[in-house]
Amino acid sequence: MATKIDNDIHVTLEDQKKINLFARKNGRLNELRADVEEAKKRLQNIEDASDDLELLDDEETIGYKIGEVFIDHSLTHTQELLEQDKKNVEEEITGLKESIADVESLLKNLKVQLYAKFGDNINLEE
């Protein structure tokens, strides 16, 4: 984030706090977005695995990774485990998306306030 403030406009502590909050939440937003991308990738992996399992015979045993070890499971049990994983990741993504929406609206609000006061003298980058 770049800030350039002309001296003609008086910067109050209040303004400084808003600028700080903006910078902080902006960093948080980038983090959250990265987290969502990462979670989406995990979800994709789980879905790919589920799709591939569909092609297998019911009698096959599948090595499902618990910790660092692949433990043999029946096909149906593996599918159940994957389903559970999928649910967890989906919940995680929903939570992250909610946080993103919250931070975004906060940033938008701060932007309006800061631009109203400083106009072109401040540059709030994402």
Partner: peptide, 24 residues
Amino acid sequence: LEYLRDQITTTEVTMARLYNWNVK
């Protein structure tokens, strides 16, 4: 880290203001 971020931003802004003040 968030606290540190605040101190960094405050210092950035102060430096910019002092610099501008000096130029003026």
